[in-house]
Design a protein around this nucleic acid. Sequence first.
RNA 1: GCGAGAGUGGCGGAACUGGCAGACGCACUGGACUUAGGAUCCAGCGGGCAACCGUGGGGGUUCGACUCCCCCCUCUCGCACCA
Length: 854
Amino acid sequence: MEERYSPGSVEKKWQQFWNANHSFRALAGGAKKKYYLLEMFPYPSGRIHMGHVRNYSIGDVMARFKRMQGFNVIHPMGWDAFGMPAENAAIERGIHPAIWTYENIANMKAQLMKMGFSYDWERELATCDPEYYRWEQLIFLRMLERGLAYKKRSAVNWCPQCRTVLANEQVEEGCCWRCHSEVEPKELEQWFFKITDYAQELLDETFRLTGWPEPVLMMQRNWIGRSIGCEIDFPVAGSERRIRVFTTRQDTLFGATFMSLAPEHPLALELTTPERRAEVEAFINRIRKEDKIKRTSEDYEKEGVFTGAFCLNPVTGHQMPVMLANFVLMDYGTGAVMAVPTHDQRDFEFARKYRLPMIVVIQPPGPKLDPETMAAAYTEPGAMVNSGEFDGLDNETAKERIADHLERQRLGERKINFRLRDWGVSRQRYWGTPIPIIYCDVCGMVPVPERELPVILPKDVEFHPEGGSPLAACPSFVQTACPRCGAPARRETDTFDTFVESSWYFLRYACPRFQDGPIERAAADYWMPVDQYIGGVEHAVLHLLYSRFFTKVLRDLGLIRVGEPFLNLLTQGMVCKETQKCPEHGWLFPEEVAEGKCRKCGAEAVVGRKEKMSKSKKNVVDPDVLINEYGADTARLFCLFAAPPEKDLEWSERGVEGASRFLNRVWRIVFENLDILRGGGPDQSDPDTAETVRSLRRAIHQTIKKVTEDIEHRFQFNTAIAAVMELVNAVSAASGKERFPVTMREAMESVIRLLNPFVPHFAEELWSALGYQGGVEAAGWPCWDEAALMEEKKLLVVQVNGKVRGKILVPSDAADDLVRQTALADPNVVRFVEGKELRKVVVIPNRLVNIVVA
RNA sequence: GCGAGAGUGGCGGAACUGGCAGACGCACUGGACUUAGGAUCCAGCGGGCAACCGUGGGGGUUCGACUCCCCCCUCUCGCACCA
């Protein structure tokens, strides 16, 4: 027998084999159907973590499975190589970001290779390569021409820690998504991409992306946040000015009794009367100073101030005091809200506090609402009252009628409003794609001419911990000549948000070395869209929304055909592990705990929840350690077996051992039976053997069917692997193996082929041990034989009043009558039926019998 | 508050269109082989002596419910004064 399974040498051997044979090289064209399999590319932080191992193991199963099924699979990998950590390393350790990044890429690539993932490395790309970002700069110029990129001065989210601005999507609960420091508002001139132009299409398509998980689509819909209503003008009393509001409740217009403006509203000070001025200014200044967290927190007290001005309700002519209210947001709608205290809870609270008038305009069925006694706003449907010609209508109908009325009278118009804001892409950082713009005192803002691209990131810059963009402090970069008039001019020193690079990398994979443009049309048309995309759910509204937007833009620029990048999306869960904490010393590494006590101080270590692996919580497992100890195949098998992909995976050392044990078991079965498997004659035909063969063959083909369906339709890798384990158990339990060498071989060949997507090195080694050359993948995915699945006899369950009381063996597809007779004759069943009135017998063919007695 | 998802043995998780609850694995228990076993193999393994009881809790539909319907509880995630 072969010596023990030693993953190290087996894995090295087959990685070399795949490399030498270019096994995973993807070429466009041919008779096979294409299949684009993609996993989210990593940021080159230096080392892969278990999240990567899981993500890429899941992807590799699909890639190998589809290849075995005869698809022309493209499975690329690359590097999301721009970003802050490289720049921080430069500041802290004096290493240039480029050197740091490329060293990390080399290390991580070696790690990925050791995992045996089937990537076409010939398509590898790094976004920090000028050969990549030059095309991004070109795309930007095209967007600029079309008005899809523009610059404006506005309040933006500033992260003091990262010393740069952030897009709205990158702020989580008022904090930076990367470093979690509190974000401050800052008034800056910044570049934006006009994602709002695509809001409707981005929303509409979410209803057609049937291959996406519903929660992700829901998150995108919420983020886009479409609402239908009206914009209505309210004339200011004694002035030509108008205040425009957006409302979704135009049916409550007759109940609007005051006006609420955002403190930042341009009319706020203008409308204020002289005697109110001091108070209003104080209010505005106070609210301005409050940070975003406070202003959006749950128990934020509703406050306001009266401007002294009035406007007129356009349908009733009533005077409405104009208030400033701290809860009205300037960047949603028009920054002004018509207040209907009877039918909006916020307005209700506000009106009670400042003793503002209330009029009920929607009556629920039952007791009549009285503004004097109402305890809360009434927001449910009802009948219109106090609303002139609209009285008596139900409020939903009134919504339409009033909208019609406003449009006819030119008082307002129907309007669809989105929550989505344009994507701010300027970053005041060095390690990113330079924005190809030049500022000339004479000509103003001038785009860098195409032929001068790329604008290359200069190498000779200085990094200072106290901040300031290194690019801005680099005269050789900043100083240039105006492309239009030749006068001395300055370059834009902001760089792009790194989400810009990841918004189109999947297109560049189709043609990574293309020299004549960002995307080679034919290659993209062949490979796109991505058939299966796999990554973490944390990108639900960041990367995944930006990528969809970019794909649409590139389509409209005529560069590609598709409008949606990812046909099917799988969002895998996190990798979690138990945490431990010392009251004194905080989070503890497992080795800092002995017998439940902190090694430093002896205090009781608190075993915390299972949390996402993170360095700060000291609960990470290094994939390298795992690979060295158990091998890549065991690491992969564990990740795939312990939980279904979309759920969180709980780390378990025991689980890893179990995975390893299973592989050893299969290894042993193959080598202990190698003579039978390689040299045996035909199966013997004695009745006992024939019966064993029949049931074993049934098990083999049931397993093939189940594994195929579990992978293909459900991504249920855990149950697929469980099914193979069951088959292995059945083989191992079958006695007299030497009497059926043909079936033994069929069984073990099936096991090996079915395991290949999960544990490819292992499968290759056993496959070659069986005497094959040229790899398992060439053998293709096994097909199941329907005939082998047939059973001549079926074991049916017999229930009495829904409880299992016996089992009977009947011919498959036996007539119901026969099944019924057999069931009633079963001695065990008789015990429970005897002496009772037989009410009913339910026979479900090939499943069960239920006898109902009184 | 709104939206989405989830609650099943000691643990991770199965159970596809309503049809044997607990596949598979881990842990555990007993045995075999052994100088040894943290290797391997065999057997057992939801609770209860039993009748029976068991899929977060309570109702319902059904011959039959983890699965469908109604109400409630808990947890996770996303959004959060969006007018």
